[in-house]
Design a protein around this nucleic acid. Structure first.
Lengths: 199, 199
DNA sequence: GTCTATACGCCGATAGAC
DNA sequence: GTCTATCGGCGTATAGAC
């Protein structure tokens, strides 16, 4: 009981501190260049034992991060789908979200777009097979049905549309484009949409 | 003298065997999941010492691979530039090359498109700063000058055009698209070109 | 739940005989 | 130039006291 009350008004749980520190390091240096000692230091802990108390292995940290990110994306996508009817508007909403994330939470996007997740998490689903991205494919499918999008397999539509979007974001994240993502958003949206829209 | 004669009619040099085996493993499992013992086995050698006789460190193997691939790309691009006048034709030639490589030498493309090279070669130039890719940016620049391509910074042009191309190839290489790259080529070219062409 | 100490394995790299 | 043997170190993970 005392514990419960304490937990409520406590500063962020240690678990979250660990996850946050790990995300930052994985995004910056990569999973394999990050040791548990690095994570311990970045999280302000005294011993790696603390980490092992919360996560069974190093992989489990990455796995938890991956799940959190995909879950949160999936929820946001549901929200966007509810608030917008037309597939074009839904895609627009997703683009909004991704560009905003790139500026506000670059580490999340770096982890998602720039790292080879199945290289260190061979058991996990590849990004395209996760709930979040299956939903995106469904939106494209619906757009083809409704006639907004040219006739093509949804995967191809995904390749073209998010080719433009992701590559723009990747270049922002790596510094190959020097302004904030926001600066490129409306143009990139147009180019991406034109690549799949029925004209 | 004897040695020279031998070398001429010898089967592929050991160096090349090592590079080939390493490329395959790096492409399939990633640099960090590949040990020198793996490379030794894949190259049919008895000892890792043989490898150390030809390469100072594991990094140097990856570095040599990277240099070879960029050099060879760069030469091909020069060739394409010589044989074609208009930037649109030159880009078309580069797309041809990349799709062909994806079907004929998937490991090369996996290494180039799918691995985070500066994660294990922090000293090397990122892909976009290499000679080969600087030449591509120059072609796009020329296309903007000549009026074939819309007015935009060349980097943005690159982001859109190769966003479509690379993402298509990436999906072929990971199996998210199930046909050979060749099958998607002409469509992808159209979508990519339309994303930057002055209409 | 956090500390100290330490085990254990793997892997990159070297030494030195042949 | 290839072999055997081995070092050194790092990094993950555990044992066990507090």
């Amino acid at each position: 009981m005392d514990q419960e009350i304490e937990n409520i008004q406590e500063q962020p749980e240690i678990q979250d501190e660990i996850l946050l520190a790990a995300l930052k390091l994985f995004a910056e240096k990569g999973y394999f260049n990050t040791s548990l000692i690095d994570i311990k230091d970045a999280a302000g802990l005294n011993t790696t034992s603390v980490i092992y108390h919360h996560f069974k292995t190093k992989q489990m940290i990455a796995s938890a991060l991956y799940a959190n990110i995909i879950d949160s994306l999936s929820i946001s996508i549901d929200d966007i789908r509810r608030k917008n009817e037309k597939p074009s508007e839904q895609l627009r909403g997703i683009v909004d979200l991704l560009f905003k994330l790139t500026d506000d939470a670059p580490d999340v996007m770096r982890f998602l777009l720039l790292s080879k997740i199945n290289e260190f998490l061979p058991e996990e689903k590849p990004v395209l097979k996760t709930v979040a991205f299956v939903k995106i494919i469904k939106i494209i499918e619906a757009g083809i049905q409704s006639g907004e999008i040219r006739n093509m397999t949804p995967q191809i539509g995904y390749a073209y549309f998010f080719g433009v979007i992701d590559n723009t974001l990747r270049m922002v994240l790596t510094g190959a484009l020097d302004k904030k993502a926001d600066f490129y958003q409306s143009q990139a949206w147009l180019a991406a949409w034109n690549a799949i829209a029925k004209k």
